[in-house]
Each structure stands twice: as structure tokens, then as C-alpha cells.
Amino acid sequence: MTQATLPPSTPSDDTPPRVLLGPQRTIITAPAELDRFGDTGRVAVITAGWQEREAEDDDLAEALGGRTLNLRLHARCEVVFAQDRELFAAHRKRQDRLRQMQELYNVRLDHALGAALALSQRSEPPEVLAPELDAAVDAIRTIDDGHLARIQEVHADFQHRVKPDERPALTRQREELCRLVQQCTAVAVAGGHVSTLLNRMRLLDMTACLRGRPIVAWSAGAMVMTERVILFHDRPPEGPGNSELLDAGLGLVPGVVALPHATLRLRTDDLRRMSLKSRRHSPAACVILDGGDGVTWHQGRLTARPQTRVIRRDGHMVHVDSWLRGDVPWDAQGGTTA
């Protein structure tokens, strides 16, 4: 594993390692990553992204040596909703609001991304074109930032009005979860429906529970660990969509945009789109998390599994290790003005 330091804004700390992996369907690396932590105790498993099927975890339990404890976040939330209908109604209302906001955000995003992509195809001299393209990327970033700020206002309003921390049905589950996590030496977070996974983890306040434990998370689980959850798919049947910001993640791994199944879902040969993605999320690194890929965040450092790549500012993908080695300075890779 190659080591390098992320930008100085990232605090160095003594938190346990957090590993983000690609999909585990064909290349299974999660057990080896958990073994690297050294302690072979029980592993708390979160499969809430599988929704109603979260308990169907036999294969996962077997892959992790049968030492798993499924925290059943999805089912727990259903219990909470059944016991506290007021909370359920408020939660559903918030989700409706967020869904509407997402649709409106997408209208703005569509135009802004369209402008940036159109500019990126122009052939004017770089000294004329570059500032315009920079401004177009800035506009996208402003839309993303504004959207995230409004989402956080909605969450804050929910917190203020509904006071989930004071609701017995919920606090009972939170306390029990923290006890269970304390009995485990590590946590594994599987993929699935990223929005459901994020919602359930947030409602059950899992960030606080998880802080002191090593974490291995893959696919949607990896996305949720980061600071911003970015949805993307260039090949859905209805045509390429616009990569969109869903919400803030749990923020347990800073400076990374997790892109699971990227080779399958992204048109990686379309350098204009790839470049735009890199510049839009800069200074965060857009990390490709295909099968076998992975990065580890530990003590303020990011290390990568061999072959794991990031999207460079010019749209090409390069190995994280060469990127982190500083072959090209961080500012030039991620861009600080875009």
C-alpha cells in the first residue's frame, strides 16, 4: 500500500482505520481487510441498504467467517416507525420534501452541466475558453453547495421540530445499537440502496456509535462513509443521467468521492464528462471503486489497494498511488479554482 497525505484541511487523528472497497460480488476483499485489523472478534454488520432483505445475509456471514452480528437497522427503523407514528409522519414528510428538492435541483443542474459540457467542446483558444469553462464549473459547484446547504437546513429543521434524540422508541434502539457495536471489534457496511442506507444510519445516529471502531464499507456503504454522496450512472436505459449530489454522507472518510462500479456505470472514455466530474468535486478525489479496488483512511492518511484509480483533472484515470506520490501536485490534479 502506498501512503501519502491528503490536503492539509484534513485533520490527523487517532481514529481506527476506515476502509472503502468496491463491490464484493466477484472479488471478495472485505474479510482480508477485516483480518488486517488484527482482532478476530465479532463483526457488526450493517445491511440496511438491502432494505426488507437485510436479514438475508447468510453468504456475507459465511464470507466473514460466521463471526457477524447483523445490526438490522432497517427492521429497527420499522419498529420505531410503528411505535412512534408522529416520528414516522415527520420522517416521511421530510423525505417528500427532499425528493421534491432533488427534482428541482436536477432542473438547475441539467442546464449548468449542459453549459459546461457544451463549452468543453468548443475550439476557441485556451486563454479565451478556459475562464469561461472555469466559471461554468463554478456554477455547478455553487448549485451543489446550495443544494447541500438547503438539505442540511431540512435536516436541522427536522432535528429541531421532531427532536428525535428525545423520542423513547428511537433512543431505545440507539442505545441498544451502541451496546451491540461495543461488543464487536469491527463494523462492516454492505452496499445496496444508498439513500435507504444513509437514512437509516442517520436516523439511528450510527456515526456516534461507529467512531471508535474500524470500519470496512463497500459500494453504497463506501459512499455513505464519505462527506458527500454522489449518485451517478451514464448508462441507464432512459439515457445518461446527470451525476447528482444526494446528500451529505456521514463524513467518516474525508476528501473522497466514492464511485463504486465506476467502470460499469460511467462512460470512462468520455474524457469531457470525466474531467468535469473531477473538477466539480475538487479538491475531493473521485476514487474508482471497481471490484478489487479500495482505499483506507487512517490517521489522516489515505492509502490505496493496488490498481485503485482516481479521475484526474483532465478526465483520465490514474492509479491512486502515483497520484498520491505527487507525480502531479494536488492543486494541479484536483484544481483549486474550478
Binding site: 463491490p23 460480488r25 441498504g49 452496499g191 445496496g192 440502496h193 444508498v194 439513500s195 435507504t196 459500494s219 453504497a220 459512499m223 449518485l231 450512472h233 441507464p236 432512459e238 443521467g241 444526494l246 463504486p260 462500479h261
Partner: peptide
């Protein structure tokens, strides 16, 4: 009615 393909990362 786009499906959860957009949201699902297994």
C-alpha cells in the same frame, strides 16, 4: 418513473 438503479450500488 426511473427505478432505483440510480440509487443502488451493490
Amino acid at each position: 418513473f426511473p427505478g432505483p438503479l440510480w440509487m443502488v450500488y451493490e
